[in-house]
Amino acid sequence: MEAVVNIYIVEKNFLLRSGLEGLISEIPGLILKEVFEGIEKNLFEKLTQKKPDVIIIDPDSVGDNFINLISKLQDEPDIKLIGLKREDCPENICSRFKYQLPYDANKHILLEKLREACGSDAFLIKNKQGPLSKREIVVLKEVVKGLTNQEVADKLFLSIHTVMTHRKNITKKLGIKTVSGLMVYALMNNIIDINEVV
């Protein structure tokens, strides 16, 4: 049921890294995928290969290579960059980040900034919400009659893969996992009639 924002960290300092990990774990929907120290070879390739949503970078960890790396990362439109910002961070470096986590900020502010950078409500943005689509309702009707995925697919002329995708989305949207739970939902909302299922 979780929405997911995948995050990478580039930070060599253990204490800072643990702090970042702690912050990330407090926001539902954010998942820390990988941690780098900043000195890895081909860091740019490693960072972009798996298409993270957000990268948190400490310029100090990358060293001389920083400007080169950040220029390339800025060309990646789908990756958001967050920089750790020391008080004495030179302008030419910290101006590279749209989002910044200041060293001296308190926890509350850091959480706010992180949440803002990751999309104000990670849960809502990535999670399909709202009422079921017409297609999903049609599938739901068949599922609660006790048909298997394959039978639903045959009956509605859909591929089994499509049926499974619909089922996943139905469960996600409703927060109901079992067939009998879905049946109660369908009856409660008059999607089916009791006579259709007995």
Binding site: L174, G175, I176, K177, T178, S180, G181, V184, Y185, M188
Partner: peptide, 8 residues
Amino acid sequence: KLFDMKSL
């Protein structure tokens, strides 16, 4: 099913 019951 308890989870479903809660959602409902």
